[in-house]
Simulated scan of single mutants.
Amino acid sequence: MSLSSGDQTLPKFTFRHIEDKVFPFIQDKEVQEYFLKWGLKDYLTAQLFVFDQPFQPYEHKTLLNDFMSDPSIYFNLKIHTSESWTTLGQKAASINYDFVPCTVMSLEFFDRLKENRLVHESGHISKCFDDFFEDFIISDELRKMLLIEESENYELFSESEKEEFLFRLFKHICLGGRICQFEDEINPYFNVIKKMYRDLVSVVKHSETKELKIISCIYKITASMFVLQNTKVCTPQDIWKLSDQLGINSTFILHEWRLVFCSVFFFSFMRGTELEEGRGGIILESLPEEFSR
Rank of each mutant, 00 (worst) to 15 (best):
residue 230 N to E: 15
residue 126 S to P: 01
residue 258 R to M: 02
residue 276 E to R: 00
residue 117 R to V: 01
residue 172 H to T: 13
residue 127 K to G: 00
residue 250 S to Q: 15
residue 78 K to D: 10
residue 231 T to A: 05
residue 218 I to H: 02
residue 173 I to N: 06
residue 36 L to R: 11
residue 42 D to I: 02
residue 164 E to Y: 02
residue 148 I to Y: 10
residue 228 L to C: 02
residue 6 G to R: 11
residue 222 T to Q: 12
residue 9 T to H: 14
residue 169 L to W: 06
residue 274 E to Y: 06
residue 209 T to M: 01
residue 261 F to G: 01
residue 107 L to A: 06
residue 152 E to C: 00
residue 212 L to E: 15
residue 197 Y to A: 01
residue 156 L to C: 05
residue 42 D to T: 06
residue 200 L to C: 06
residue 270 M to P: 13
residue 64 L to D: 05
residue 214 I to N: 07
residue 115 E to T: 11
residue 267 F to G: 00
residue 8 Q to E: 13
residue 65 N to P: 01
residue 111 D to G: 03
residue 228 L to N: 07
residue 123 G to K: 00
residue 275 L to V: 07
residue 166 L to C: 05
residue 68 M to V: 14
residue 250 S to W: 11
residue 24 P to R: 10
residue 287 L to T: 13
residue 260 V to C: 06
residue 273 T to V: 06
residue 156 L to N: 04
residue 152 E to S: 04
residue 42 D to W: 05
residue 98 D to W: 03
residue 135 D to L: 07
residue 248 I to D: 14
residue 254 L to D: 02
residue 119 V to N: 01
residue 130 D to V: 08
residue 102 C to M: 10
residue 286 S to Y: 13
residue 71 P to K: 08
residue 74 Y to R: 01
residue 214 I to P: 07
residue 91 K to L: 04
residue 276 E to G: 04
residue 237 Q to N: 09
residue 240 W to E: 10
residue 127 K to H: 03
residue 78 K to M: 06
residue 22 V to C: 04
residue 178 R to E: 15
residue 210 K to N: 13
residue 286 S to N: 13
residue 274 E to H: 02
residue 97 Y to T: 03
residue 187 N to I: 12
residue 286 S to H: 12
residue 8 Q to A: 03
residue 236 P to G: 02
residue 62 T to R: 10
residue 281 G to L: 14
residue 246 L to P: 00
residue 23 F to I: 05
residue 233 V to H: 07
residue 95 I to E: 11
residue 1 M to D: 12
